[in-house]
């Protein structure tokens, strides 16, 4: 088990050294990666996933706790250094949820301390709107239910030390709760996002430009407050959505009512 991943010595698309030539990723922290399409977000992730040793396009070197990772460490994470979660993902196995979770548990080697399938399901149900029933078929789950199950599975059942969350803003789940669940598990969380609420959830923002790391911004106290304000605003939208979803009319619902529900 290690504590930090360091990334250093990269070059941007024009062959110039990156503005930020050294950055350290620590366990339990959330890093938002922001930047325009083509700015090098995916490449940064790939450098980390492949534990690049300076040979890649960007020449970045990835160190684990200050050392070049050896063959042993690489083999240890053969099944994946990064667990992925993205908006495009779907379940394609037509198996009952609980059967799938049981099968998945069986496949794991005995050295792993596993969470029970029921626990994963319960956690998923905290995030989703409609409850997932154990014998529901995976492929029939709604978008939000499927995403909740994926998140709970990655948070509780995955060995990968790094989690990559790629644009899950429209997943129809409690995203703030989902993020805090993932961070609680002492993982390094990387979020690629265009959603301000999610981006501000990270305690550090990595800004990409022209293939290089352009700047690293520590979330300020002011931004943290702003994030709370936006979260409350978001909650109001959630409440309104829930009212509409459950067939209620919005008669008499105004700013004040929404505010009081929050408190």
């Amino acid at each position: 088990m290690f504590n930090e991943i360091q990334v250093s010595g990269g070059y941007d698309k024009d062959g110039n050294s990156e503005k930020i030539s050294y950055i350290s990723f620590e366990r339990g922290n959330v890093y938002s990666i922001v930047g325009k399409t083509g700015s090098g977000k995916t490449q940064l992730i790939e450098d980390i996933e492949s534990l690049n040793n300076g040979e890649g396009l960007t020449k970045r070197i990835i160190l684990i706790d200050g050392k070049l990772p050896d063959e042993k460490l690489r083999n240890e994470y053969r099944s994946g250094f990064i667990a992925h979660l993205s908006q495009n993902m779907n379940y394609i196995l037509d198996m009952p949820v609980i059967e799938f979770l049981k099968m998945r548990q069986k496949l794991k080697t005995s050295k792993n301390k596993n969470t029970s399938p029921e626990e994963i399901l319960d956690t998923a149900n905290e995030l989703a709107g409609e409850k997932i029933k154990p014998h529901e078929v995976l492929t029939r789950l709604s978008g939000g239910q499927g995403r909740s199950l994926m998140i709970s599975d990655v948070a509780l059942n995955n060995e990968a030390p790094v989690i990559l969350i790629d644009e899950i803003e429209n997943a129809g789940i409690d995203k703030v709760k989902a993020l805090s669940l993932l961070t609680k598990k002492e993982k390094i969380t990387l979020i690629i996002t265009h959603d301000p609420l999610i981006a501000l959830h990270g305690n550090k923002r990595i800004v990409m430009q022209n293939g290089g790391i352009y700047s690293v911004i520590d979330r300020s106290e002011h931004e943290k407050k702003l994030a709370e304000f936006l979260a409350a605003f978001n909650k109001k939208i959630d409440i309104t959505r829930e009212l509409i979803r459950t067939g209620k009319t919005l008669k008499g619902v105004d700013e004040f009512v929404l505010h009081s529900v929050l408190e």
């Binding site: 099944s79 994946g80 992925h84 979660l85 993902m89 779907n90 379940y91 799938f100």
Partner: peptide
């Protein structure tokens, strides 16, 4: 095409 299937299924298949 692993980007369109869940992480769990990806691990099951690679296993």
């Amino acid at each position: 095409k692993t980007d369109v299937i869940s992480q769990a299924e990806r691990e099951v298949l690679s296993y």
